[in-house]
Amino acid sequence: MANKSVLFKIKRQASPSTEPFWEEFEVEYRPGLNVISLFMEVAVNPVTRAGKPTTPINYDSNCLEEVCGSCAMLINGKARMGCSALVDNLEQPITIEPFSKFPVIRDLQVDRSVLFENLKAVKAWVPIDGTYALGDGPRILPQVQEQAYQLSQCMSCCCCMEACPQFNESTGFVGAATIAQARLFNMHPTGKVLKQERLAALMGDGGIQECGYAQNCVEACPKDIPLTRSISDVGGDVMKKAILDFFRT
């Protein structure tokens, strides 16, 4: 048998309306294990540490290489991706919980549709739909491309929002990811056409003003997206718009 094992406990919940409960597991250690692979081990043999048969753990995951954004959860209290959380680097017993600010669907799977709603609210896209061919798009300078590329790596994991002290039910704050995406599409020579609408949206209740600049978002983001930079940048754009609106409308 195993001479070394991995201990972890998971906060589980059978359905959105039932009470959460904790279950403890122990699996055999292998080098290179990550948190998602622990769940796979449990699925092979769904028995708790105490020997009680249980159900396999429900969780989101897809790419297993930190690019899809689906496997976000709280690992030892912090918002991060399960697939890139290596067991070797974690203190045991590892505590694993679903995100605390998003409704739980089951176990570690949560409803993160608020981010999608927010992206729609700021029109985070380049509007090119039409009935005829529009021809080549405008050129994008390499300097702009470089900045845009960083922002375009956002994988909608919502770590930045979970870690943000201002993102909660009483503020209804939009969160850093949406602000960064608004900046990305405002940078695009064709996307720019919606810039004023995006900024106006971000001035609504729950908008950019709710940021308290705690800078947790930028620390938590697994893709190292320059979030606080984006908040300051868009914060400046929004102020310019507010002042111009005041004098020119």
Binding site: V114, E117, A121, T171, D205, G206
Partner: peptide, 9 residues
Amino acid sequence: KGVAPLRAG
């Protein structure tokens, strides 16, 4: 219900 989405406008 979780955190409400942005109330644009």
